Amino acid sequence: MRSSRRRPLLVPVLVCAAAVLAARPTAADGEPGDGSAAESGLSTRVARLYEEAAVATQKYEAGQREAEAARGKARKLEELLGRERRETAALRDDLGRIARAQYREGGGLPVAAQIILADDPEQMLRGQHAFAQAQLDLDTALGKSRRAEARLAADESRARSAWQGVERRATELAVLKKGIEDKLDQARWELQGQADASVAAGACRGAVRLVQPAAHFSQSWVAPVETYTLSASYGSGGARWANRHTGQDFAVPIGTPVRAVGEGRVVRVSCGGPFGIEIVLRHPDGYFTQYAHLAAVTVDQGERVTAGQWIGQSGTSGNSTGPHLHFETRVTDRAGSAVDPVPWLAARGVSLG
């Protein structure tokens, strides 16, 4: 049964611009060989592009959050515009009523006649007051209508500008993100091509030294990759294996940094065979862990490693149908001695659930 677990996108965010350092090269099973500057540079480029893709993704997601916030503001503004439209319509109705009333009354002549024909001063004053009030009502209604129309036009313009800005920003971020991801995808497959050449030759090109950011882990054991989907599990059947699957697979893109699950020593780095490019570590408790189908290695045979240290980059070398990390725990350094890695890691505080 296929299960999945998404970890926070920490590794890509932590990936720094990598630098290539002098390294003691290795060949098949740790024999000395010739390192490749081209391969080192490509691994470095993949690592750098991971960082750029992570930053672009963060910006894109921030842009999406900004767009959602802008949508919320726009919805509120639309509600405001709706009220303003209703108020403007009401003011227009008021102006219509006033105009119709004046038309029925002869455009104000009855009021003027009332003033001229008044029999006494009090009646004349009432006529003057009525005339003045009618004119005031008309002026007030006209002023309100003009202000409401101007406010409505300004708010509608502001709403259009806000939406255009949000859409423009979202498009720019999407284009940037896709461009970097396309470059990363191309670099990944170039890296895999070099790995396939190494496997075909049966000789590793040598450790690629990537600058890893300082990381402080609260536990002595960690998962072999940071972000992953669990695929084939220990003991599962399939046509690709002679008997049963001997490890736990982590579906990850080519070039993903692979970490030592705990401190230990590199007892084997080899290229060729069904596992492709692989690394085997021996841990202080006597157990061994294997990391297979890699695209590159970043450690040499005999080297000491710490928990969480990058030891390679994932790939799809050897007997592999797609990019993933094949991870095993063993009682010896050789195939055929594997134990289920999921409970083994769980007993050490690492849950893959």
Rank of each mutant, 00 (worst) to 15 (best):
residue 173 L to W: 01
residue 90 A to I: 01
residue 120 D to R: 06
residue 154 A to Y: 07
residue 92 R to K: 09
residue 100 R to D: 12
residue 146 R to N: 15
residue 336 G to E: 03
residue 351 S to M: 10
residue 209 R to F: 09
residue 328 E to S: 08
residue 168 R to P: 01
residue 25 P to K: 07
residue 81 L to W: 07
residue 159 A to Y: 14
residue 230 L to M: 06
residue 86 R to A: 13
residue 150 A to C: 05
residue 149 E to W: 05
residue 286 G to E: 08
residue 214 A to K: 12
residue 74 A to N: 12
residue 161 S to P: 07
residue 161 S to E: 14
residue 125 L to C: 14
residue 344 W to T: 03
residue 50 Y to S: 15
residue 72 G to S: 12
residue 207 A to R: 03
residue 313 Q to D: 05
residue 283 H to Q: 12
residue 260 A to L: 03
residue 175 V to F: 10
residue 250 F to Q: 02
residue 321 T to E: 07
residue 119 D to T: 11
residue 97 R to L: 13
residue 173 L to D: 04
residue 348 R to C: 12
residue 233 S to N: 10
residue 264 G to S: 04
residue 206 G to C: 14
residue 57 T to F: 11
residue 143 G to Q: 13
residue 299 V to N: 01
residue 61 E to L: 09
residue 202 G to F: 05
residue 36 S to K: 00
residue 160 R to T: 11
residue 224 P to K: 01
residue 194 Q to R: 10
residue 206 G to A: 07
residue 105 E to G: 14
residue 235 G to M: 05
residue 214 A to G: 14
residue 175 V to Q: 06
residue 183 K to N: 09
residue 14 L to M: 14
residue 297 V to H: 03
residue 210 L to V: 09
residue 67 A to L: 12
residue 276 G to P: 08
residue 151 R to E: 09
residue 322 G to Q: 13
residue 313 Q to Y: 04
residue 11 V to Y: 02
residue 25 P to H: 06
residue 200 A to I: 00
residue 238 G to L: 04
residue 352 L to Y: 06
residue 271 C to Q: 02
residue 9 L to N: 05
residue 222 V to F: 04
residue 226 E to Y: 07
residue 37 A to W: 09
residue 320 S to F: 00
residue 139 D to G: 07
residue 187 A to T: 04
residue 174 A to M: 09
residue 93 D to S: 09
residue 128 Q to H: 12
residue 78 E to M: 15
residue 159 A to Q: 15
residue 225 V to A: 04
residue 20 V to T: 12
residue 234 Y to Q: 02
residue 321 T to C: 05
residue 116 I to E: 14
residue 171 T to F: 15
residue 35 G to L: 03
residue 195 A to C: 00
residue 152 L to D: 08
residue 238 G to T: 11
residue 262 G to N: 09
residue 232 A to R: 05
residue 27 A to L: 08
residue 223 A to S: 14
residue 65 R to D: 13
residue 99 A to S: 11
residue 142 L to C: 07
residue 110 P to Q: 13
residue 183 K to R: 10
residue 321 T to M: 03
residue 132 A to D: 13
residue 147 R to A: 15
residue 204 C to W: 00
residue 46 V to M: 02
residue 130 A to I: 03
residue 18 A to W: 04
residue 123 Q to P: 08
residue 124 M to G: 06
residue 33 G to Y: 03
residue 208 V to N: 10
residue 51 E to I: 03
residue 114 Q to P: 05
residue 230 L to G: 01
residue 166 V to I: 03
residue 85 R to K: 09
residue 319 N to E: 02
residue 35 G to I: 01
residue 259 R to M: 15
residue 148 A to N: 04
residue 292 A to R: 01
residue 94 D to W: 02
residue 268 R to T: 09
residue 248 Q to L: 13
residue 205 R to K: 09
